[in-house]
Amino acid sequence: MSWIQRKNLYLVAILCLCVLAALPLPASSYALMWVFLTAVYLTLALSYDIVGGFLGYMNLGHSTFFGLGAYSTAILLNHDFGLALALFLAIIFTAAFAAIVSYPFFRLRGAYFALATFGLISLMEVFASNLQHVTGGSGGISTPPGDYMVPAYYLSLIAAGGTVILSHFLGRSRFGLALLSIREDEEVARSFGVPTFPYKSLSLVISSVPAGLVGGIYVWNVTYISPPAAFGLEIALSPVVIAMLGGTGITLGPLVGAVFITLIQELLWIKVAHFHLTIYGVLLVLLGLFMPGGILRTRWLWPVVQRLGFGEKIDYFKKQGTLER
């Protein structure tokens, strides 16, 4: 097992990146779309995990940010804004929305928070369906057509990569440590100087940015968004399922979860026309019953994860050793 080392893992990662970067040359647009969607789901799951995993607040409404990003980008694109500007403004809007809703939401804890965030998506769906003149109503909204697959593919990879880096460094920062302490015991964290409320709000804002961004990229590529696609159950559940499946609170978790889920989709969805949601549901139940820590925290994998240095417990001794030398 000596090949399981951090160094080799980086090699594998770089290799994967090279393959992904060169993929548009030979691959069909179907394969590109598949990777594109995986990147979108991964970004959603990773950004969900900032609040759901690090902070320990179960944000079932994370896809609200995806939907908002998608809708605002679509509306801006239709008003002849350039892509970059549209994405930028969409992110600002999404982040501002997150900042505003964080005030009432973080007065809640536990089940109440989970429920309220879940309710938020249904509210957004009502708004998207009813504000006809802005959103196009329940029929959805189309953006300028065109073949954006290849650039969108690269953009989604960049977004996903950026979120991986964000999540990785968050786990090692002072801010990330504060989030973990809030997860463990909020009152104690406060009495040890952690400004809990601002930090909770900030973490929600940070988690909203990647979600809003991929929402925008998604709509630009697919050129269409409707209320159920933006705020429906399937998109709402996928980040939670992916993060929980892989393992929350670790950067590697959503990565594993995303690959796993998209593989399942690829293998099952195509063959079975119905019961997609049922499969999601059964997965959720099984996770809750048997694997609340996710795949990575199972008995066989966790030692490997720790050995790679991706566990929650950072090996400070090693770092200290290098300091003293």
């Binding site: 179960m58 079932l60 536990g110 089940a111 989970a114 159950l233 559940l237 929980m244 119905h274 019961f275 997609h276 949601l277 049922t278 999601y280 549901g281 059964v282 997965l283 959720l284 139940v285 099984l286 996770l287 809750g288 019953l289 609340p292």
Partner: peptide, 19 residues
């Protein structure tokens, strides 16, 4: 308990609705 219960009841709810 919170995480597990949300996962289980949400999952069950989705299964019931889909079926």
């Amino acid at each position: 308990l919170l995480v597990a219960s949300v996962l289980i009841t949400l999952g069950a709810s989705i299964v019931i609705e889909d079926l």
